[in-house]
Amino acid sequence: MPLNPIFTDLLKTDFDNLYCLGIDKLREWYDNSWDDFQGDVEAVRFVEKRMVKTSVRDTPIRVYYPMNSGPYPVFVWIHGGGFVLGNIDVYDSICRKITNHVQCAVISIDYGLSPEYKFPEPLKECYQVIKWIYESAQVLNINPDKIAVGGDSAGGTLSAAICQLARDRREFPLVYQVQINAMYDLLGLTKPASRVENAEGYRLTTKAIEGFFVQQYLRELSDASQPLASPLLADSLAGVPNACIITSEFDPLRDEGEYYAKRLSEAGIEVCLRRFDGIIHGFFNMQRLLPEARDALALVCAKLSEVFRK
């Protein structure tokens, strides 16, 4: 399918040149770049800010509560931004919509960004926050047996790794995972064709992935071969939660997401895989601009609702 022409003006920006701005200016640009795309901010019952003490640092989280009464199932959200950019404010409207449409609590993690916090610190941090959520179920008024996790882009990568870690450590149960446009193979060791086909011209480039984001995230490039950095490289995916995986046709990360879904299915995991044709990386947060973004959100909400009703 041809690229959606709605992206024509957006893609006139020289995105690779932005990485020369320096981390602070790049983060400021990224946070502001979503202002024209995000959907309306819906009211929820209330929003609570908390701080969770982890071995990495004191981690800010934001808890969104729906209008109904608890204890609530909970969806833990991990934001995108290539491990380097983003924060919980960028996805505030998304979290509010999921809270209302699924009638669950949503907990968004403001994890430490790279290069200040390099692998495996953001993974440890998010994992420990979810363990705290599970252990603090009574305080949070949530159901500890109904915790799902998910994220966009790098947040999806972290959520996939968390599912593998939770399976192996058995410190808390997870009932579902959601990943949108996630990176499962940091340096493309599995040779995904989409990293060549969609290497440039579609906002996120292969050069940016491998030459900037991954280099900021890892201490050593050899760490990319670790499954907790590149979830696709795990020997086995058996025993992780069922999944909803969303990819985009013109995303360099498309093929590794679809290969990950295939490997999950081969391991006996129930997978809902949906590719959005004509669409680029980062579309999920373009709720005001794209019907496809709203369709993707509706799919996520439907899958979470189905899981939480069981």
Rank of each mutant, 00 (worst) to 15 (best):
I6V: 15
I6Q: 13
F7N: 09
T8R: 12
T8Y: 12
D9M: 07
T13A: 04
Y19I: 15
C20R: 15
L21I: 07
L26A: 13
S33R: 14
E42D: 11
V44P: 05
F46K: 15
V47Y: 02
M51E: 05
M51G: 01
P60Q: 14
N68T: 15
V74M: 10
W77Y: 14
H79R: 00
G82E: 06
I94P: 03
I98Y: 03
I98C: 03
I98R: 03
H101T: 13
Q103E: 15
C104F: 01
Y117N: 15
P120N: 09
V129D: 10
W132Y: 10
I133C: 12
E135V: 00
A137G: 00
N141T: 03
I142F: 00
K146S: 06
A148P: 06
A148G: 07
A148V: 02
G150Q: 07
G151F: 07
A160D: 00
A160P: 02
A161I: 02
Q164C: 01
R170C: 13
V175E: 09
Y176S: 04
Q177S: 08
V178A: 04
N181E: 12
M183E: 15
D185I: 06
L186V: 12
L186R: 09
T190E: 14
P192S: 09
V196C: 03
A199I: 03
L204A: 08
T206Q: 04
K207G: 08
K207R: 14
A208D: 08
G211V: 10
V214A: 15
V214C: 12
E220D: 15
S222L: 01
D223P: 01
A224F: 01
S225T: 15
A229V: 04
L233T: 07
A238T: 08
A238F: 02
V240C: 06
I246Y: 00
I246M: 12
R254H: 03
D255P: 01
E258T: 04
A261V: 05
K262M: 11
E266Y: 06
G268C: 08
C272K: 14
D277Q: 08
R288M: 11
R294S: 13
A298W: 03
C301K: 06
S305P: 00
S305R: 14
E306M: 07
V307C: 12
F308K: 01
R309G: 02
K310F: 01
